[in-house]
């Protein structure tokens, strides 16, 4: 069972995560179907900027984050932004969206000028996340764990970051034991997604340059 302190940590992170939404008008724009490649590029760029802003708002609410060294705060978000966004996109893609919305979104991404070499692993990742049937709690905790990873470049006080990440990992592990008692590997599977995210992050920089060239 989760103790009182862990319950509080969980509900705090979930509440912060639930507030993590891009503005409605921007989400609507994504579903309008008339678009040229150039408009698509601009829109996806605008979306990414908005997602980073939302991500920072979430991160600021993570217990202890604002006590970290300011430059370490920036290094953590900078190192994890792409991974947190992939995780978020996976969640959105796996939701039951209104009829046809997934198709429009997928088409928009496929027509964005990004090479298939990058698109295919991304949609594979969405699929593997979908198979885990993660709850909102798991998404919130896994996102927090991704952001509070001490092994990002330029982190000065690794120990301070570890101290924030560890209790969240513990909560996730217990949460998995409670809610997935038929699958003892569930927690390990969730952590496995973090490895996949690292790979996607690694390819992201290359992906952007190829996109810009196109």
């Amino acid at each position: 069972e989760l103790n009182q302190e862990q319950e509080t940590l969980l509900s705090y992170i979930v509440e912060a995560y639930n507030k993590c939404r891009i503005p409605q008008d921007m989400a609507k724009k994504l579903l309008q179907d008339q678009f040229s490649t150039e408009e698509n590029f601009l829109l996806l760029t605008e979306m990414a900027t908005s997602q980073v802003q939302v991500l920072v708002e979430f991160t600021k609410k993570l217990p202890g984050f604002q006590t970290l060294d300011h430059e370490d705060q920036i290094a953590l978000i900078k190192g994890s932004a792409v991974e947190a966004m992939f995780l978020r996109s996976a969640q959105i893609f796996n939701r039951k969206l209104p009829q046809g919305h997934n198709v429009v979104l997928e088409e928009r991404i496929r027509k964005s000028g990004i090479s298939d070499d990058y698109i295919t692993p991304m949609f594979n990742f969405y699929k593997t996340v979908g198979e885990l049937q993660m709850t909102q709690e798991e998404h919130a905790l896994l996102t927090a764990i991704t952001i509070l990873s001490p092994d990002r470049p330029y982190i000065k006080d690794l120990h301070a970051v570890e101290k924030l990440q560890e209790p969240i990992l513990n909560v996730l592990q217990i949460f998995c034991k409670i809610h997935h008692n038929k699958d003892p590997q569930h927690f390990a599977r969730l952590l496995g997604r973090l490895t996949e995210l690292r790979t996607l992050n690694h390819h992201h920089a290359e992906m952007l340059s190829s996109w810009r060239m196109n």
Partner: peptide, 22 residues
Amino acid sequence: HSSNTIGLEAIIRKALMGKYDE
């Protein structure tokens, strides 16, 4: 790539300072 990284960092710095707070 480097200009993108600078762009990302600028967005993060502004957001951390609360410039996008509503």
